[in-house]
């Protein structure tokens, strides 16, 4: 009887030790259960929506009294932190949120190298008569440029570490070089190393 109980107990222990895994769909705003450090999906989403709302509220990109729409392009995201990031995901999300916030009342320009290449190629095809369409439009000039920089301050001592991340965005007038808007997003994480990794 004792042997049987011990056998069943050990089998249970084995099943628990080598238990099942999971593959679950979660909200993009859910806290990251894989690792709690670095920018998470919730940070990217919150940051983009906050910045878009704030730019709109400041009114710097509002149409002029004669109805002329402002134009801007997103230049770059500089990473000065100690965490590698996919800069495109932050800027793309921000661009989308800005587009949604302004609902077409601002001209967002695509100044990526690929956009320039595609524009030039299309113009050449139109010139050669290979495709239809007028070739008399000029590429839009920009009134403003939007830039971002991500910085971090990392502290580490013994089994503890903290990381403060600051992402700053700024909108600069390309005629006057005046910074017409800036805002930032902050986050801080703390980690403790397990004894098995010390």
């Amino acid at each position: 009887m004792l042997i049987r109980s011990v056998t069943v107990g050990l089998l249970g222990l084995l099943l628990t030790a080598c238990g099942s895994t999971r593959d679950t769909r979660v909200s993009a705003d859910a806290a990251d259960s894989v690792t709690g450090t670095g920018l998470q999906s919730v940070d990217i989403r919150t940051m983009a929506s906050q910045m878009a709302a704030d730019i709109k509220e400041w009114g710097v990109l509002a149409p002029t009294s004669d109805g002329k729409q402002a134009s801007f392009f997103i230049y770059e995201m500089k990473n000065e932190s100690s965490d590698t990031i996919n800069k495109t995901i932050i800027l793309t999300k921000l661009r989308t949120e800005l587009f949604k916030a302004f609902r077409g009342r601002v001209d967002i320009l695509d100044r990526s190298p690929s956009a320039t290449d595609l524009t030039n190629a299309e113009q050449r095809m139109k010139q050669r008569g290979e495709v239809t369409g007028a070739n008399n439009k000029k590429v839009f000039g920009s009134d403003f440029v939007l830039k971002g920089v991500m910085q971090s301050r990392d502290r580490q001592a013994g089994a503890l570490k903290s990381s403060y991340i600051l992402v700053t965005f700024e909108l600069t007038d390309l005629a006057t070089q005046k910074m017409v808007w800036t805002n930032d997003y902050e986050m801080k994480t703390e980690s403790e190393k397990s004894v098995i990794n010390r």
């Binding site: 990473n79 000065e80 965490d83 990392d154």
Partner: peptide
């Protein structure tokens, strides 16, 4: 073509190198 991310990786490496007991 992303020297900023390259430096981020190195900074993280420097922090990790400092994890020696």
């Amino acid at each position: 073509g992303e020297p900023d991310n390259a430096r981020a990786a190195l900074k993280r490496g420097i922090l990790m190198d400092a994890e020696v007991a």
